[in-house]
Design a protein around this nucleic acid. Structure first.
Length: 195
DNA sequence: CCGACGATTTCCT
DNA sequence: GGAAATCGTCGGT
């Protein structure tokens, strides 16, 4: 797990309670991850960006593991993933939500008007709170000098982890229960079924 | 708390 | 042409 290699579904629950540190524009903020979703490889997971083929957007998803896959969606939002690819199988874990545990002042200034609980409560909110944009696509999450550093925590007891279908995923991949979250944590985003 | 709606790029049919 | 790994705002309950 130190290099985040493995199948996305195996790595995803191990990222709960992990600490992600961002150092952007000279400001530091740390989030404790409370909600994630796993996305698989080409031909494997119909809900994944990597299902069809490699494109300019999803290239980072095809490896190596331990990097940030940042994509732009809905014409205005960035979302941050941990690349978990191994044995040529693309994979990534979407960081959906967390609690800001350091750099509250920085996160507040990036998301004015937000309640503290909501600062990183959602994948696009999390990237704004941490100052993450497409410019960080492909950066290492393990290098000492990286603007994004991810440190896993001790594994969370199974009974404290909730699972569900993935938010906003429609079609054949919709029922796959690859969303993982900390039960009863207020920073977990509200679940929304796909249209 | 909930549902409806618009913003606007990338990829797919 | 249309949906998408979304969010803030608006109005109602």
């Amino acid at each position: 797990m130190v290099d985040f290699s493995g199948h996305a579904t195996d790595v995803a629950p191990l990222l709960l309670n992990a600490r992600l540190t961002s150092t952007v524009d000279g400001h530091r903020a740390v989030v404790r991850i409370t909600e994630v979703e796993a996305y698989g490889g080409m031909g494997e997971d119909p809900g994944s960006h990597a299902f069809r083929r490699m494109t300019p957007r999803n290239t980072t998803m095809f490896g190596p593991p331990g990097r940030a896959y940042v994509y732009f969606t809905y014409g205005m939002h960035f979302c941050l993933n941990v690349v978990t690819c191994e044995y040529g199988i693309a994979g990534a874990v979407l960081l959906r939500a967390g609690e800001i545990v350091e750099g509250l002042d920085v996160a507040r200034s990036r998301r004015p008007g937000s309640r503290d609980r909501d600062l990183a409560r959602g994948p696009a909110r999390l990237t704004v709170a941490l100052g993450v944009t497409g410019a960080l696509d492909g950066v290492s999450l393990t290098a000492t000098r990286s603007p994004l550093r991810l440190r896993p925590a001790d594994p969370v007891a199974l009974e404290l982890i909730g699972t569900s279908a993935r938010t906003g995923v429609a079609g054949p991949g919709a029922p796959t229960p690859w969303r993982f979250f900390l039960r009863d944590d207020p920073s977990v985003s509200p679940y929304r079924a796909a249209v």
